[in-house]
């Protein structure tokens, strides 16, 4: 498994896409910090970027890579290696590469310009977000046979998570505004990895506003670390579950 990961990383580092992604992230971060002396404002802008670009690139890149490496996967399957090791190895390899890009492109500038609780939260959530979208990319790729369909599905997942889902939630809130929706809202949020990441950052940036919300559950959720534990746990679930499914599919998949 680790060998596959190693060769996947070696393969990716030879391509220029990931380097371009790293440079793009770094440029965005540095220009944001340069443009404004207010560090908190910079972090807010970076959050917006992290919430959009990081999932998009992670899912599209991982899906494309999966299909580009399809023949290689075929070759590996004919070798004495378990399918689980092959897929997990590729997952680790891609994750390692994308995380490295995120580390250099976002974490380093944030650590240099705005090392704070909020900064650390952005680093952690951004990393977890990358991982969950790579995991989703594997699910999308193993479920589809065709590269175009796979990338289409990946884009749909991204579009759904970043825009449509929240729109539906808003609609849901309007429709059921008269009902107590506390639990429902927390549940709904956990159905979208981007929302989870966002909430984790909100807990840093907007805790003052969040504390204004009435209701014991929210008070507990926002007030005493419980929310942080819950969201991070759910983000981990969002990494584990799609990958577990994709492993299950891949085990039975014809190559």
């Amino acid at each position: 498994m680790l060998k596959i990961a190693k060769y996947t990383i070696l393969d990716i580092t030879r391509s220029k896409v990931l380097i371009a992604y790293t440079i793009l992230l770094a440029l965005i971060c540095i220009s944001i910090f340069m443009a404004d002396a207010d560090v908190t404002k910079g972090l807010v802008s970076i959050t917006t970027v992290v919430m959009i670009i990081v999932p998009l690139v992670s899912i599209v890149y991982a899906t494309t890579y999966y299909y580009d490496a399809y023949e290689f996967t075929e070759l590996l399957v004919s070798q004495p290696i378990s399918r689980k090791s092959i897929l997990m190895g590729q997952f680790l390899g891609i994750s390692g590469s994308i995380l490295a890009a995120f580390l250099v492109g976002v974490c380093v500038p944030v650590a240099l310009f705005a090392f704070s609780d909020t900064g650390i939260t952005i680093m952690v959530t951004g990393s977890l977000l990358s991982l969950s979208f790579i995991s989703l990319a594997f699910l999308a790729s193993t479920l589809t046979r065709d590269k175009a369909k796979g990338i289409g599905l990946a884009l749909m997942i991204w579009f759904y998570c970043s825009i449509i889902f929240d729109g539906l939630v808003l609609l849901f809130l309007y429709t059921f505004a008269d009902y107590p929706l506390e639990k429902a809202m927390i549940l709904l949020t956990s159905l979208n990895p981007i929302d989870l990441a966002r909430i984790l950052i909100l807990l840093q940036l907007d805790i003052s506003a969040l504390m204004g919300y009435t209701g014991a559950l929210y008070q507990q959720f926002f007030g005493n670390g419980w929310g942080v534990v819950f969201t991070i746990f759910m983000q981990l679930v969002w990494i584990a579950i799609p990958m577990a499914f994709s492993l299950k599919v891949f085990r039975k998949k014809d190559l």
């Binding site: 030879r14 580009d68 490496a69 023949e71 290689f72 070759l75 004495p80 290696i81 399918r83």
Partner: peptide, 27 residues
């Protein structure tokens, strides 16, 4: 079925061999 160890006794030459693009033959 669902094992892989026996594959070390098999050499396979596919119809169309495709390999990681960026890799060199030696590698």
């Amino acid at each position: 079925i669902n094992t892989f160890d026996y594959k070390k006794h098999i050499g396979y030459m596919p119809q169309i061999g495709r390999y990681p693009d960026n890799m060199k033959i030696g590698q």
